Amino acid sequence: MRAVPNSLHDDVADRLRSRIFEGALHAGAFIDEAALCTEWAISRTPLREALKVLAAEGLVRHEPRRGSFVSEVTEQDLDEIFPVIALLEGRCAFEATRKATAADIAALDTLHDSLQAHAAARRIPDYYAANYSIHEAIITLADNRWLAQVIADLRKILKLARLQQLHAPGRLEQSLGEHLAVFAAIRAGDAEAADAAMRKHLMRQRDALRELARHGKSRLLA
């Protein structure tokens, strides 16, 4: 059976989303619809449909008679988002622990070996990549599409903020310890401990970002 191709507005949404995440369109930037239509050789209709998609995701805001702008994430937004995503990812860790096989544990072990190696060498971009892979692996193991969907939506907002919490003093070592605590609980089959450790890990991220904000360094480009 042939896959149904994406609609034009989905493709436009993907392109616009990429520009936002890459920083070509920064937080608060005006989205020049006429310029984009000319550049991409499209009509206003698919672009406006794409903007509706991004507005629903929280990445774009529309102001009557002014147009569309890239959303800005405030400290209050982060204070409200992190407890929610901590609960969701904690539940993922809980469900992943109950469902993980020996092969799954072995795969997580390999990922954590990589995480430790990057931390020891202070390769922060590689650490971020390994960190992301571990979170994705746990979400996949949880096998709960509703959790995965809501987490993905919230991650888009956090990605929009372009936060780099590992730049806080001592945060790299702290983050590694938190990850190892989550993994130890999963390996031991203790779902409640895995849940608690994951929630602690996410909330510690917020603490680190708050500390950076006090020093004017909370938003550093990746």
Rank of each mutant, 00 (worst) to 15 (best):
R2H: 06
R2K: 11
R2N: 02
V4P: 00
P5N: 02
P5V: 05
S7H: 13
L8D: 06
D10H: 12
D10E: 15
D11W: 04
V12F: 02
D14S: 13
D14K: 14
L16Q: 02
L16H: 05
R17A: 13
S18R: 15
R19C: 10
R19T: 01
I20S: 01
F21D: 10
F21Y: 12
F21N: 07
F21P: 01
A24G: 00
A27C: 10
A29I: 03
D32E: 12
A34D: 15
A41F: 10
A41W: 00
A41G: 08
S43D: 14
R44M: 08
P46I: 06
A50V: 03
K52Y: 08
L54R: 12
L54F: 11
A55V: 05
A56L: 08
A56G: 10
E57N: 07
E57Y: 04
R61F: 08
R61S: 12
P64E: 04
R66V: 09
R66Y: 06
S68G: 03
F69K: 09
F69N: 09
V70G: 07
V70K: 06
S71Q: 15
E72V: 15
T74K: 09
T74D: 06
Q76A: 15
D77L: 03
F82W: 09
V84Y: 03
A86W: 03
L87Y: 04
L88K: 01
F94L: 08
R98C: 06
K99T: 11
K99W: 00
A100V: 13
A100H: 00
A107N: 08
A107M: 12
L108F: 02
H112Y: 11
H118C: 08
A119C: 09
A119T: 10
A121R: 13
A121C: 02
R123K: 10
R123Q: 14
I124M: 02
P125S: 07
Y127M: 15
Y128G: 01
Y128R: 15
A130T: 15
I134K: 04
L141D: 03
N144H: 13
W146M: 12
A148T: 11
Q149G: 04
V150C: 08
A152D: 13
D153G: 05
L154T: 06
I157G: 01
Q164R: 11
Q164W: 09
Q165N: 08
L166E: 05
H167W: 10
A168M: 03
R171G: 01
L172F: 04
L172I: 12
L172M: 07
E173V: 07
Q174M: 09
E178H: 07
L180V: 01
A185P: 04
R187K: 15
G189A: 07
D190L: 05
A191S: 11
A193Y: 05
M198T: 14
L202Q: 14
R204E: 14
R206I: 04
A208M: 02
A213M: 06
H215R: 12
G216M: 07
L220H: 01
L220P: 04
L221S: 13
A222C: 00
